[in-house]
């Protein structure tokens, strides 16, 4: 994993300041969406070998939720955006 994450608010920060939540593609279903949708939301994650977008929380920094796009094989970080810039919140 890259040692530094370029937080859009704080600049390059050690990755130990962040908490990884995981797959940023999941979206919370409506309350009445049914069991299958809720099962998928709670238990299924994208787990690609390669490019992946994830929620990272800058726990020891600005405490914003970020979306980090990186490669799960090479650990290269491609982009770091504030989660709200994606129109999503975790």
């Amino acid at each position: 994993m890259a040692s530094l994450i370029a937080c859009p608010h704080c600049g390059p920060r050690p990755k130990e300041e962040f908490t990884v939540k995981g797959d940023a593609a999941i979206a919370r279903p409506a309350a009445d969406a049914g069991e299958d949708a809720w099962y998928a939301y709670v238990y299924l994650r994208d787990n690609p070998r390669g490019r992946h977008k994830e929620y990272w929380h800058h726990t020891s920094g600005c405490r914003r939720w970020l979306v980090v796009e990186r490669d799960t094989v090479t650990h290269v970080v491609y982009a770091v955006l504030d989660a709200s810039a994606q129109g999503e919140t975790a």
Partner: peptide
């Protein structure tokens, strides 16, 4: 575990 998704058979110094 290191705590982030990874297929690399290597980990982090932290």
């Amino acid at each position: 575990i290191d705590g982030y998704n990874s297929y690399a058979q290597r980990g982090n110094l932290a």
